[in-house]
């Protein structure tokens, strides 16, 4: 994750070219950050189709807002802020439409997780099955967190974004980030205790 205060934006050239209408430069930015943003949105929505549509909207919004991007932060921080805000708005709307997702709609994505399709685990189908179950419970426990708590868990524990950067993106203090993380971990601990051996 680029540190805005220490180094110039590594995407400065691509951003400048994209702003002048070079769509290939914007494609390069999509390819560079798409996977990271996919992870963010997917872990917050737990739904593949929603993730895809939201990601399209996020990059479309970034593309149209590019002329207004002043470079006060790195491009990555800026697009991350767009992604977080749009995902939180989407989750609010989804909740208003009639609650969150049913467990059937929720994607566990465990089959695509290379860490879970480890050869040592494959040799032990029982262990593999337990791990799948645990991953499923973890997803459910994540969806049981409030959006604010799920956001910090996704950014810190899953994506490895430092506390200071999360605080900058969410426009809250570092203390708030740490406190939300602490509460979220306690919640996840209690939700998973029945499945932990």
């Amino acid at each position: 994750m680029p540190d805005d205060s220490l180094q110039p934006d590594p995407d400065e050239d691509l951003v400048a070219r994209a702003r002048s209408g070079d769509t290939r430069a914007f494609d390069a930015l999509i390819l560079k950050y798409g996977e990271k943003l996919y992870g963010l949105v997917y872990n917050m929505t737990s739904h593949k189709e929603d993730t895809h549509d939201l990601l399209q909207d996020i990059f479309a919004k970034a593309y149209h807002s590019l002329p207004r991007f002043r470079g006060h932060s790195s491009f990555y921080t800026w697009i991350y802020q767009i992604a977080v805000n749009m995902t939180l708005n989407f989750l609010k709307k989804r909740k208003r439409r009639g609650g969150g997702l049913s467990l059937n709609e929720m994607d566990s994505a465990v089959q695509q997780d290379p860490a879970l399709v480890d050869s040592s685990h494959l040799a032990n189908p029982e262990k593999q099955s337990k791990l799948h179950e645990l991953q499923k419970r973890l997803n459910e426990a994540m969806m049981g967190l409030s959006e604010a708590h799920r956001t910090v868990v996704t950014m810190f524990d899953i994506q490895g974004v430092p506390h200071a950067e999360i605080a900058r993106i969410l426009k809250v203090s570092e203390g708030t980030v740490r406190s939300r993380l602490h509460y979220a971990h306690i919640h996840l601990q209690s939700q998973l205790q029945d499945y932990w051996e």
């Binding site: 996977e35 994505a109 695509q112 868990v153």
Partner: peptide, 10 residues
């Protein structure tokens, strides 16, 4: 456990 989710990719 959460770090395992880093590998979830399209």
């Amino acid at each position: 456990l959460l770090a395992l989710k880093r590998h979830e990719r399209p």
